[in-house]
Nucleic acid binder design. Sequence first.
DNA 1: TATATATTTGCCAATATTTGTCAAGACATA
DNA 2: TATGTCTTGACAAATATTGGCAAATATATA
Lengths: 80, 80
Amino acid sequence: MLLRQLASKLDLDTSIISKVERGDRQLKKEQIPLLAEILNADKEELLMLWLADQVYSVIEGEPMADEALKSVSKKLKKAK
Amino acid sequence: MLLRQLASKLDLDTSIISKVERGDRQLKKEQIPLLAEILNADKEELLMLWLADQVYSVIEGEPMADEALKSVSKKLKKAK
DNA sequence: TATATATTTGCCAATATTTGTCAAGACATA
DNA sequence: TATGTCTTGACAAATATTGGCAAATATATA
């Protein structure tokens, strides 16, 4: 599928899609379900990957990333 | 220590400190080392907790939070 | 090679989010 | 009541995100 086809379906400029594919940009959360439909992919899975990207961009390059993640996992378990 | 003392040392309004203590706001990353000094706490530890807060606010309420965290951990290991 | 088509890149404007200020109110205590 | 501390919400300023445009680059094809 061409970028402009994907772009038009997502109602975005091709340049944005290009950036997304190269990792320069991230889509908005609302765009993920639509993308999943277009690509015929699993929405939950895609949303999970999107979330992971969000988290990654927060901890990227942080020396304490690993410890922080563990701390979050702990808190998450307690929250349930 | 009074809020206004802490506030003045951090060069912030007391209202912000109040909100931070109640979890309504988060400090900026740059303010953490300073806070650690003032409280005589471990900078690394505080920064780690701050990071964890950032991550938590990203995944909070997300059904796929757990999977996403695992995915990030995996990616983190590979990146090293 | 020349032309058409597709992608990438940098820059800018619009929008959204975050951060800080201020003023009013709540609460405790003398 | 008067004073000092903390909390809250409305607002403004600063910052970040998002999307579009146009030029540059890459890729395909005659």
